Amino acid sequence: MRKSVLALAAAVLVGGMIPWSANAELDQLNLKVVGTWGNLSNWKVNEGPFWQQTMPAVSGGKITADAVPQTEVGIKGFEVMRMLKIGVFDVAHGVVGYIAGEDPIAEGIDLAGVIQNWDDARASMNAYRPIIAAQFEKTYGSKLLALYPFPSQVLFCKPPVNNVADLAGKKVRVYAASMGDLVEGLGGVSVTIAFAEVLPALEKGVADCGITGTMPAYQAKWWQVATHAYLFKVGYTATFAAMNLKTWNKLSPETKAFVEKQMQEFEDTSWKNTMAEDAMGITCNTGVGGECTEGKPGSMKKVEPSAADDAVRKKVLEDVVLKRWAERCGAECVKQWNETIGKIAGVKAPVPQ
């Protein structure tokens, strides 16, 4: 069934798009592209089909790509932008959280515990887009092409976790600085572990819980070890597509306009696909809420945060997460964030003196 779903998605991506009417004006390109994780839906349903099928089809064969997921070439999330900058790839897809440790301005797009629903997630990424675009150009020599999400990021735990108090003393896998701040503010111990290494870490007790998206947790088989899906909303994992600026600057104006148009359609499609699979990720991990369309369901206990849990989230967000990030980012950065994402989320980061 999974193969047929992927085939249908790819057919829709290609068949639903009208070929560019001025293909003769496009540059002839074969781009080196790296995507996100090859075993997850963003690559299988969005990134892979876009570069391997949609882009060649709508460009009349003018723009093709040697596109592979980062897992196939053996690189880690934090290495993606470094390799894009030096020209190993022409285009890179990656998660902002993985570069947050060295770039607090970019980190601001996806601070843990801030965004709590899909509407705010998209509005906040759009509002912060000019800031991210300027930062990518300045720091990484790249042109931002798209911003899109992974499914909502929640906690999956091997020991029983039924409320926020149960996180006290638990070792929780994180992949971004603000996630570590949130976990520590909740009384847990943050541990940074690569995505591919989380399952054995849970098995061996190196980690008690892990934070990831609802469907990625299922696709990575966390349900074989974790017992509780604690749906405490950490965020939506801002994900980017960016092109090496030297590659971008060589393109003709017509090709630039074409690429930007196609990347906007890619972004819209990625949002729709990811939002649609978010609830299914919970169903597949827990067996609750219907039939898992992806395969055998897990049997984690589904735990919804209480109003009291959410009150703790808000307090930790204000007292720990935003304060620590503000110190990392500086006054001007914080002012920009408060005027964009902070306004959408109804929270305010303290401006450092």
Score class of each variant (00 low, 15 high):
residue 209 C to K: 07
residue 280 M to P: 01
residue 240 F to A: 07
residue 277 E to G: 05
residue 276 A to T: 10
residue 279 A to I: 02
residue 237 T to R: 04
residue 316 V to L: 10
residue 299 S to R: 15
residue 199 L to W: 06
residue 283 T to G: 08
residue 288 V to T: 12
residue 231 L to T: 06
residue 321 V to F: 07
residue 255 T to R: 10
residue 333 C to H: 05
residue 215 M to Q: 03
residue 207 A to H: 09
residue 207 A to L: 03
residue 313 R to W: 15
residue 324 R to K: 15
residue 241 A to F: 14
residue 312 V to E: 09
residue 226 A to S: 09
residue 253 P to F: 02
residue 212 T to L: 11
residue 243 M to W: 09
residue 242 A to W: 11
residue 273 N to A: 14
residue 236 Y to H: 07
residue 298 G to N: 04
residue 270 S to H: 13
residue 254 E to W: 04
residue 231 L to I: 06
residue 238 A to E: 08
residue 229 A to L: 15
residue 222 W to Y: 14
residue 243 M to H: 10
residue 325 W to E: 12
residue 214 T to L: 08
residue 267 E to N: 12
residue 276 A to E: 14
residue 302 K to I: 07
residue 216 P to Q: 01
residue 327 E to P: 00
residue 203 E to N: 10
residue 297 P to N: 10
residue 264 Q to L: 14
residue 276 A to V: 10
residue 244 N to C: 11
residue 292 C to Q: 08
residue 321 V to I: 02
residue 216 P to A: 01
residue 282 I to Q: 06
residue 278 D to V: 05
residue 248 W to G: 06
residue 304 E to S: 15
residue 283 T to V: 15
residue 325 W to G: 05
residue 237 T to Y: 13
residue 246 K to D: 15
residue 295 G to Q: 09
residue 300 M to Y: 09
residue 328 R to C: 07
residue 236 Y to A: 03
residue 312 V to S: 01
residue 246 K to E: 15
residue 312 V to L: 05
residue 256 K to S: 10
residue 202 L to D: 00
residue 329 C to P: 01
residue 244 N to V: 13
residue 327 E to W: 10
residue 298 G to T: 10
residue 285 N to T: 06
residue 268 D to F: 05
residue 295 G to V: 11
residue 316 V to A: 12
residue 231 L to W: 11
residue 322 L to K: 07
residue 309 D to H: 07
residue 243 M to N: 03
residue 295 G to S: 11
residue 206 V to W: 07
residue 215 M to C: 03
residue 219 Q to L: 15
residue 265 E to L: 13
residue 311 A to L: 05
residue 220 A to P: 00
residue 245 L to E: 13
residue 324 R to F: 14
residue 235 G to V: 05
residue 204 K to R: 14
residue 223 W to L: 00
residue 211 I to A: 08
residue 217 A to N: 07
residue 281 G to W: 08
residue 260 E to Q: 14
residue 236 Y to W: 14
residue 252 S to T: 15
residue 330 G to K: 06
residue 292 C to H: 03
residue 228 H to I: 02
residue 302 K to T: 04
residue 256 K to C: 06
residue 248 W to P: 02
residue 241 A to K: 11
residue 224 Q to S: 04
